[in-house]
């Protein structure tokens, strides 16, 4: 028996909106730790790891570890029917072939339940080793989204370079080139407006903008994004999910031939 009650149901809507274009079907794993997911896109270029810790739920009952195979676009359709302020409860019986999403309005005057068919998914679980990163950039998530969107109008790839000057996002295309440099800046009114660059070594990697733009669908989840870079490793683009977890996108770099 699984029963997870999330007061901030809107968070789950935002999580699904940030996943559904990248991954079609995935297993949600429920354990005492929390509600999590790990999935790759169909071409195995990107991987997403979601964790919503059990403590973040108002009520978290998971009698035994359970894997719920869901079509993410169908799950997103169901969650779209919840109000942004609704309390969302996810319920499933052990060995069930469906999952129930229950939506309660904040003042309890409307209660809805949606039942969605589960699917069997052969998913591969990958071990993600702990890595020391050469550079970690924290910046406003909206700024990062703007940069990825702007650069993708000019080129298909972005070179992200971190030096003592700051972090540089560059692209080139048929019409020309573009470079955007963001400097370390903590003299801001609000902490979420800061750009913090921690650099152990200079690093420069090339990535497909199409995927970066897909990751920025998670922007409504968090004011800040963390971009962790190391030579010859996938970049990690991380958004916090309130105080309860994170969504991490890993993207394999382009490799010089």
């Amino acid at each position: 028996m699984l029963e997870l009650r999330l007061v901030q149901g809107g968070l789950l809507k935002k999580v699904l909106d940030s996943l559904k274009d990248l991954v079609n079907d995935a297993n949600f794993d429920c354990s005492a730790t929390g509600f999590s997911l790990q999935a790759m896109d169909s071409s195995h270029v990107a991987l997403v790891a979601l964790l919503l810790r059990s403590e973040g739920f108002e009520h978290y009952r998971c009698d035994r570890n359970l894997s719920l195979g869901m079509n993410l676009s169908n799950m997103a359709k169901m969650l779209k029917c919840a109000g942004n302020d609704d309390i969302v409860t996810i319920k499933a019986d052990d060995a069930a072939d469906s999952v129930t999403f229950m939506f309660e309005s904040p003042n309890q005057d409307k209660i809805a339940d949606f039942d969605m068919k589960l699917m069997d998914i052969d998913s591969e679980h990958l071990g993600i080793p702990e890595a020391e990163f050469q550079a970690i950039v924290r910046m406003p998530s909206a700024e990062f989204a703007r940069i990825c969107k702007d650069l993708s109008t000019i080129g298909d790839t972005v070179v992200i370079s971190v030096t003592k000057e700051g972090v540089k996002f560059s692209t080139r295309g048929d019409i020309g080139t573009a470079n955007i440099v963001c400097r370390h800046n903590t003299s801001v009114d609000k902490p979420e407006e800061a750009t913090i660059i921690e650099m152990e070594e200079t690093v420069s990697l090339t990535f497909a903008l199409r995927y970066m733009n897909s990751f920025t669908k998670a922007t409504p989840l968090a004011n800040q994004v963390t971009i962790s870079l190391s030579s010859d490793l996938p970049v990690v683009v991380e958004y916090k999910v309130a105080e309860m977890g994170h969504i991490r996108f890993y993207l394999a770099p382009k490799i010089e031939e």
Partner: peptide, 14 residues
């Protein structure tokens, strides 16, 4: 020219 890397060449199946 550059070639798109693959996640499976960085992370192993467990």
């Amino acid at each position: 020219d550059s070639k798109q890397g693959n996640i499976l060449s960085f992370f192993k199946r467990v």
